[in-house]
Design a protein around this nucleic acid. Structure first.
Lengths: 348, 348
DNA sequence: TTGAAAGCGCTAACAA
DNA sequence: TTGTTAGCGCTTTCAA
């Protein structure tokens, strides 16, 4: 691989001149420029960004650390982040932590050794060490999809999202409303649940404790919806799942059992990932603006890197979610009980 | 950020000694080592891999270029690649080409400027320039999920996959078999189709031209399955879609129209991505071993990087696909026509 | 066992 | 407008 020295030799000039030509840092005579360009073309020269960065004190590289690139929600955010960043001349180092805190730490120290200009972090577990991470490493870090008090972050307003879901169900006249809380201990879920509760109470329909289930963030947890459905108890007319995967799991079980969505039970999910369009009918869900999250996170990080610090009001960016109504929710039906029995009979 | 010089000063030794201590390139007295380590700890020193790479002639960084990280198939492969590579001390630069050839080229030259040690490429469009890419850039490149004649590559045996699908349907007694070919011009799809055709012919049930539809690789194309279903013509008893998304699209439309899967029509997809488990019943599909693909691709690239060239028999790695039988296929039913009418009546 | 010094590819200050 | 040179952080001879 030819170096700047090779080019200089071939063009019969000094490396300084080539450097100036390359960076426009000084005027270069037209004639000289031509010779240099010719040498570059002939040799197939490409700058070595390492050498440049060594002097220039930056690498134009950032680390993107996330729990699982296979999760469509993270993948979408990652895509928008990478896109914004690459337009601005940054490249991103992908680090999949497999949801492991220790891999996360390893990655961070590796990224530091590579002298990345900053880090975008979707951490897997909340922990104290996160708080001081940025200060200790003296590296700009922005937390994505999770707020960290006092730290730069970009995330969605989960409490509002929960309220949106509740309001929608309330407006449709539902009174018996169930909640499927996946990973109830993680902050984002906690907030969705809190918002959901709040709004329900404000609407005069407090959440019935016997109608909430807690579990993991997985299809299989959704399947457990049948626990809400025993013959002996009055079934809910609407269900809110704290994410789309769980909602889809619930939908499958519901259909298998002969319930109709939304006629017998309305269903709302959270996230608005691709699969919410796959069910029949497609899922009503609280949409997170993945585009905005990714784009703002990238912008915030670049601001931190380039100007040293962000305007205070930009330190904690929160993106509002929005309800997207698709087919899985409907006005509560007065005859839903009867309908349901009919379906059951048909089935057997 | 402290440098090796700072450490050397703090420990009262020369930088050479610190370097030796760090890399074990020479014996360092125990006492000296202790002092160095102490300095490192106090200063919070971390090697600068850029400086090291400048001398050492490598960066332990590779580029991963793919059309869309949001596509679950690519995301899974990406994950396994990143995992294998990171275990071996490499980091990966994520480049999402948004399916654009020109962005692809830009990325490649950028990666070269960063002096990556190699590139993993899932290209978006087949084109001649691909062939000479590796030779011209003198950079190890392995093509992933797409074979390129004469170049290092790791991909699945798509022809075999097509045959597997056909054989399965044949064994279940199907005679009227339809094909949904998404993006029929791309090599992988072409091969799946070819294999499918071959096996069908070998089984004495050649593909009926009126039963093949061509379109994009999207849910919406699957919806077009109804074109195969008009009242006036004899509907197929089985459908093969060249990927899972299309299969899911077909499934949705089928269900909406009152057909039962698999009683009225069997359905087989391709890829075995997550969503194939979401339908009701879950999709029978030809599984590609994303783990093997990612892992072998990473291994091949590292071999190319570290030993300079791969054993010839490893240059074109092909991974066998496998049929995974789930609920969407069944033995052809003699009464499927009647059943179907019943369902229709019930529906209206 | 340690140190001195050259050099990796580049930029930038200074001089010419 | 161009050239010379120091130096970015590191490794690696070669000597001591």
């Amino acid at each position: 691989m030819p170096t700047i020295t090779d080019v200089a030799k071939a063009a019969g000039v000094s490396v300084g001149t080539v450097s100036h030509y390359l960076n426009g840092s000084a005027r270069v005579a037209e004639e000289t420029g031509k010779r240099i360009q010719q040498a570059i073309d002939e040799l197939g020269y490409q700058v070595d960004l390492r050498g440049r960065g060594l002097r220039a004190k930056h690498t134009r590289t950032v680390g993107l650390l996330l729990p699982n690139i296979t999760n469509p929600f993270y993948a979408e955010i990652a895509r928008h982040i990478e896109h914004s960043l690459s337009l601005a001349g940054y490249q991103v180092l992908l680090c999949d932590s497999f949801d492991s805190t220790s891999r996360e730490d390893d990655y961070i120290s590796n990224l530091m050794s590579r002298r990345v200009d900053g880090i975008l972090l979707i951490y897997s577990q909340e922990r104290d060490s996160l708080q001081e991470l940025s200060r200790r490493s003296k590296l700009p870090i922005v937390f994505v999809d999770r707020g960290v008090p006092g730290e730069a972050s970009v995330h969605s307003d989960n409490r509002l999202g929960g309220r949106l879901a509740a309001r929608h169900l309330l407006e449709l006249g539902h009174q018996r409303i169930a909640l499927l809380a996946g990973e109830p201990h993680v902050r984002n879920v906690r907030e969705r649940v809190a918002g959901f509760r709040e709004e329900l109470e404000a609407g005069g329909v407090p959440l019935d404790a016997s109608l909430v289930l807690e579990g993991e963030q997985a299809l299989s947890f959704g399947h457990r919806v049948d626990e809400l459905l025993g013959e002996e108890r009055q079934a809910p007319t609407a269900i809110f799942a704290t994410n789309d995967i769980v909602a889809v799991g619930a939908w499958r079980r519901l259909i298998e059992l002969g319930y109709r969505v939304p006629e017998d039970v309305s269903l709302v999910g959270y996230d608005d990932i691709e699969i919410s369009r796959l069910t029949l009918p497609p899922l009503t869900t609280v949409a997170q603006d993945k585009h905005a999250i990714g784009q703002r996170a990238a912008a915030l990080l670049m601001e931190l890197i380039e100007v040293g610090q962000a305007a205070p009001h930009d330190k904690g960016v929160v993106i509002p979610p929005g309800l997207v109504e698709r087919g899985s929710t409907a006005r509560v039906s007065k005859v839903s009980g009867r309908n349901r029995d009919e379906v059951r009979t048909m089935k057997s």
